[in-house]
Design a protein around this nucleic acid. Structure first.
Lengths: 350, 350
DNA sequence: CATCTCGCTGTAACCGGTTTCATGGACCGT
DNA sequence: ACGGTCCATGAAACCGGTTACAGCGAGATG
């Protein structure tokens, strides 16, 4: 017997359905119908049941309900915030989370942030998800081992992944138009008269990192600007990585006069490195970030950035998930458009 | 019949305990024991059951388990992120959330972010919490109506509230030493030679708002500095409120040479208002914030601030909760110490 | 009046676990 | 050979809902 086991003799969930039924002089089945199919039960009985239920504070037990119906009205969030992998302990996802919660909440679904209960195996999350009869799953940073996740996605559970493609009968993903956004950024810098446009990328193995680099390259080509490998520095999506990457860029033979940074956190680091080098933004170097997280607006001179539709992420994820839960096939991936937000870091006029 | 109801014919939760039992030629009871009291079952049978379980991918159904044991290993998060009340859609709580999740996760508890399922009554959260056999509850911004929350707290469910006192047999709260922190801030400003120290407070009806004001007043008195009501401006804990409040302070007859701002978000707004007025930080006005959220380090010239122990919040909340879940009485409130973090906004030397 | 329909309700099985209690056998000492 | 422990296990009730199916009475129809 585990010593941890608790004694919880509280008034937690008082009345059962049978008790309520007895008080009303009806059968449990009728009470159940009052709550699930109100229209099939006689108006008079229905009222009486509802009244009595209110009086004794009856609340249906969701575990029992889930057991019987196999619907939990819970959506799992697979998000490694701890251990080894840096995960995405990133402000962007924190900002998304609330939107996601709100969107799901509005559709009647709870959001379960799963624990791995100590067992740090690769599929701990997946196992936890399956145990709980989750109606669906949202995955943030599916850095979690691909095999087990694929297993999850392929098992038919509705899955929505953020920023990373998944395959499965009921799986889809939502992401921003990273390529297009990067191109917007480069084009904007070019329109400001910049010629030597460098970039700081995310880790190459991440999807957004790769796509934003691709957009950068595409737009350079389109604008017939030369592509210089030494003007590409890889960061880590965080401030320090951006700072380090910027320093490297500043040491190159031909110093860039603009830099597209594939994440606002890194852009803040870049700003810092530039200031440290005694250079001015935007006069000496223009900077454009990506994400439009809160700091972007707050850090002087104001960070021009490619805004991701953060509320859109949550909304799109919730919508796709719920439609699949209701039996629809997996909708195509949602690629959310990005918006250029011009602030002081790219144009002197502001 | 609701049209929303879904068809989920997937391989979700395949095998039942009886099936596994049959395959092993034992009774369901034995299988159950293998997972819950491994030591009481014969080593040989145990191994065989475990092996077979692995083979067929058996996973116990948590709903059934919860139904039988009344333990869900889930902790509810009561957090109004949406509707009317501005709630605390605040970066500080986003930063805390991850710590909380991690701390609970490490102790084997899942975190359930409850939906109010459309019914925007005051006790929607409370009702939702009770239905789910939650082992405990964490409340962020208990702006949710006091009566229903009190009901919850008094019903014996382990409750931990953040930043707001609660009463109940199994209820406690964790908060920062707001009074002490505010005093640190004022003292620090005084040590920098400032004499006219103003303050921007949080909304008066919030606990942290009130306490930080109190600390400000106490320390002024201790330092024998005059208390001027016109040097107290109320903000809303967000950037815009801080900005507006600062403008008001700048219009007062005797312009302050320092300001203690009861929240970093507001402090950023204050910095902006000061810059707008053509004044310099820290030369003309020194600024000290509260929270030490991420922006504090990033906004020039660096915001001196009173750091709250964000990881400590999550850890303390999880610890208190779990101890109560395990049957302990409510531990006394945890008042976390704050730390002065000196950056450029209060001292020219840095 | 017999029968058919329809609206409402009850009976009972079931969802998938846990747990109490009883039991059977092995082993021990006398 | 016998009674007493102890260990390992099984039978069955239970947790609190849902739901297929059957039944019943009232009103409509032939």
């Amino acid at each position: 017997m585990k010593p941890v086991t608790a004694r919880c003799d509280s008034v937690w969930s008082v009345a059962t359905i049978r008790e309520l039924a007895r008080l009303c002089g009806v059968s449990p089945a009728t009470v159940s119908r009052v709550f699930n199919n109100p229209e099939v039960v006689n108006a008079k009985t229905r009222e009486q049941v509802l009244r009595t239920a209110r009086q004794i504070g009856y609340l249906p037990n969701e575990s029992a309900r889930t057991l019987a119906t196999k619907k939990s009205f819970m959506v799992g969030l697979l998000w490694d915030t701890d251990h080894r992998r840096p995960g995405w302990r990133h402000p962007f996802f924190q900002e998304i989370l609330i939107g996601l919660k709100t969107a799901l909440s509005g559709r009647g679904y709870h959001l379960l942030m799963l624990a791995t209960s100590g067992e740090h195996t690769d599929d701990a999350y997946v196992r936890a998800a399956r145990r709980h009869n989750l109606d669906g799953v949202v995955m943030i940073d599916s850095g979690t081992s691909d095999p087990s996740l694929r297993h999850l996605a392929e098992s038919g559970v509705p899955c929505v992944s953020l920023d990373r493609p998944v395959q499965g009968p009921r799986a889809t993903y939502v992401t921003s138009d990273n390529v297009g956004g990067a191109r917007q950024a480069v084009r904007h810098l070019h329109e400001q008269g910049r010629q030597a446009i460098a970039t700081i990328t995310g880790p190459a193995h991440t999807r957004p990192g790769a796509e934003r680099l691709q957009g950068y390259q595409e737009e350079l080509a389109l604008l017939r600007l030369p592509y210089r490998p030494e003007h590409v520095a890889e960061g880590d999506f965080y401030v320090t990585g951006g700072e380090a990457a910027m320093r490297r860029l500043l040491e190159t033979d031909e110093r860039p006069d603009a830099v597209f940074v594939a994440g606002d956190e890194m852009a803040v680091g870049a700003l810092r490195a530039i200031a440290e080098a005694g250079l001015k933004v935007p006069e000496d170097i223009a900077v454009v970030g990506f994400d439009d997280i809160e700091v972007a607006a707050l850090v002087p001179p104001g960070l021009t950035t490619i805004a991701q539709d953060k509320d859109g992420f949550g909304a799109a994820a919730a919508e796709a998930l719920v439609s699949m839960i209701n039996g629809a096939d997996a909708p195509p991936a949602r690629i959310l458009p990005t918006t250029l937000v011009v602030r002081g870091s790219s144009t002197p006029s502001i």
